[in-house]
Design a protein around this nucleic acid. Structure first.
Lengths: 238, 238
DNA sequence: AATAATTGTTTGTGATCACAAAAGTAAGTT
DNA sequence: AACTTACTTTTGTGATCACAAACAATTATT
């Protein structure tokens, strides 16, 4: 018995629910993707009951998923106890990018000694897939594969402590990366992964750090001029 | 009606509950401190109902607090859906320390331009308090003040994104830092904060990074030789 | 008519209950 | 005596309910 949507309606991409995972986990993943793909606009208040209604589950799993996402800085709990996607500012965007560079280049260097033949070939596969996606100008695919490449690199280190932190940063940047890419038809990318691959093969930690830093910078550079970034942020904020 | 403790009993320091905060928040803080101070040994299974009984609250707030702490990597959810304080290994300890250095030196450099007179004087106060605590060899106080010093430094940057990540690392290292310090009567600390203070006054980012890195390294150096560290980790694990 | 007070509604929080999976325990078998 | 099997207990998950605080809308007051 749906009466009215008082606020802007929320559309969330809903995937099939596997019975092997708990409802909470499914809700968590669903909401995480929604945030990552910018399906929920920043500033929009999220209520437990509304989401429970949309996802057709009881309020309980939604409560837990929201709390977890808030703990990962994907969502923000205000003093009012209201939950929303945090608004972005140009400065915060910049801070997030610089944090990515600092942590990810560190993680890359730390992973380097652990990369063996298997992992190298896995990275090569991802690298070639990215090349292919780039020819086809499949932006969504590029984004996803790029993430997989970075993740595969960092997880080579079996004593992993940085990946959760990195994922948190991705999550915070996610909505705005997508927002930007979806609007851009044209954008050229220099493929820094080849550069990273050769650095890995040579076991050159410093060169790898440079390549990762460049990749991150250029990956977000397509968001373009500060003015364009500003425009997106302003639109997202209101 | 308490029957029996089948496992090793858990003692958690319980503080007064302020009515202005929610029960969940209070439980979260209480458990967080317990983890930070090493009151719960790694590997010990934590059950919702047991904690609820100890803290004299219903299971619900405990559930939420546990999930939040798990999201912050302070606790670990196993495949069994069992929750425990993660076990430490020498390699993981090393990774955590190196991650601290990478992120915190970055955060320090990023905060530097924002430090004005007020914040500088606040840092000076903390610095002198640390000196005092050091004379009195009050280890717990040194630890706390040291944290406050770092936090005050990083939060000078109003566009804060790294602090939650740093706190997560502190939380993971916490139990083992305390475990180590509590056993050591003698340990000398070179005060790197003075070094950091002069770097801040000179607005010398690189010198500040060096000082922060040195402070972190020496702050954990008292854990001593790899053998000693190993001993603590082994004991904690079993 | 503009502002303040009040009422009705929505929402997060916390408690309790039901249930299936997991863990622990005891009995039975080889 | 060692292992398997069956049973009991414990535990996490999810649903539902009660309540107080926050929000929205209406009415009353200046």
């Amino acid at each position: 018995m749906q009466i009215m949507d008082k606020k802007s309606p929320i559309h969330i991409t809903i995937s099939e629910r596997d019975d092997s995972v708990t409802i909470t986990q499914w809700v968590y993943q669903t909401l995480r993707n929604a945030v990552m793909y910018g399906e929920i606009l920043p500033g929009r208040a999220l209520t437990i009951r509304e989401l429970a209604g949309i996802l057709d589950v009881s309020p309980m799993p939604v409560r837990e998923a929201l709390r977890q996402l808030a703990a990962e800085n994907a969502l923000e709990i205000q003093g009012n106890r209201r939950v929303m996607v945090p608004k972005m500012t140009a400065m915060k965007f910049s801070e997030l990018c610089e944090a990515r560079i600092a942590i990810e280049s560190h993680a890359a260097a730390r992973a380097l000694p652990y990369i063996d033949r298997d992992q190298l070939s896995q990275l090569r596969v991802l690298d070639s897939l990215i090349d292919k996606a780039q020819e086809e100008k499949d932006l969504a695919q590029i984004s996803t594969l790029n993430q997989n490449f970075h993740r595969a690199l960092y997880t080579a280190n079996p004593h992993q402590v940085t990946l959760p932190l990195i994922e948190s940063l991705w999550l915070q940047l996610g909505p705005f990366m997508r927002l930007a890419t979806s609007q851009l038809e044209e954008h050229y990318l220099v493929d820094r992964h080849n550069e990273a691959m050769t650095a890995i093969e040579k076991k050159d930690a410093f060169a790898l750090q440079v390549a990762i830093a460049a990749d991150i910078r250029e990956g977000i550079a397509f968001a373009g001029t500060p003015e364009m970034l500003h425009a997106f942020i302003e639109n997202a904020g209101t």
